[in-house]
Amino acid sequence: MSMQVDPDYLRGYAEQIEADRDGALATLQQFCREHCDNRDGLDGTLWPARAPLEVMVEFTLNMAAGAHAGMSSLAYNLRYSAGLYDRAEQANTATMETVGQRWATVDESWEAHPSSAGGAFTGGAQVSPAPPAFESALGDVEALAHGTIGDINGVIKALTGFDLFSKIMEFAVGDWGRVRYIGEGFGELEHGFRAISRDLAQGMDVLAPHWTSGGHHSGSPAELFEETIRQRWVPGFDALAQGCNAFQQECEALAQSYGYIIGSLVFVTNFYEKKIRRVLALLLSATDWRKYLGTFFRLVKELWDVLVGTAKLIWEQTVMWKEQIEFMCTSLAHMYKIFRGDFEVFQQG
């Protein structure tokens, strides 16, 4: 059996893993709590989006907490292993002393020995997620309610019973700007998890030449450790990053869909509003107002139907979106169960 090991490299990599854990990973956990777990403004037609957003945040934080614990275990085991190698070397040295060599005392020798791995490892992945800029997307809706319909709503309501203002305001409590904000937050998480993945892989590249024993498929500790890093931890963080990326795309898709629908609603409402004002003027200028009253009622009723239909469409889309996120979380959890390793490294406890 051939063996080459420099315990300082094991300790160096352990430090790097701890730096990833206490630096990059801790930063991402805090970022997720601060920015992705903020569902302010998701009311009205966007209410169904709350639950899946909460589930996705919880899923991500659970994974990150599991990763935190697992990385502690990795670093501890590396240090422990380095200590075992040191003690074995010390024991061998002591044994050789008994055969007559007048070497320096073991303790002096080891204490004086500078770390051979100094500077070879990184100080952890550099992660500084940028807080998303929250931009409320309710400007158009509020302009529609207050500007377009606001001043004639009282008359319309008194005549026809339809409260267009209140109906439009239902859209004003669901701010799809928040969905976009959360999505951008997950985009930052994606980059952060990928950075950790890269950093772990690079650290393993540094360690590998300094810790070899046996050949391929020998089941040696060095081989087992490398496999754990390359086949479980690196893909695990990559998959987590990809999950965040998929979620960001989902958030963006929902926000775009909402914006598209509201944009159409604004266009159509402006069309009806002009017609309604025109007929209202006729109602006030004609001696025989009866011939315009039917048209007025019809226009208001049609606009009302458009608003009701829009609310229904948005609700349906949000529910559909909710189902998508549930599907995604279920799939991720399924992967977690199926594949030993990969996600299992993030399992807590």
Partner: peptide, 25 residues
Amino acid sequence: SGMSEILGIMGEIEHRLRGRRDAMQ
């Protein structure tokens, strides 16, 4: 196991999500 399989499954998830996104659109 490993990265290729995980990426394959993630690709499948994204494919299905894209299909639903298209339906919404």
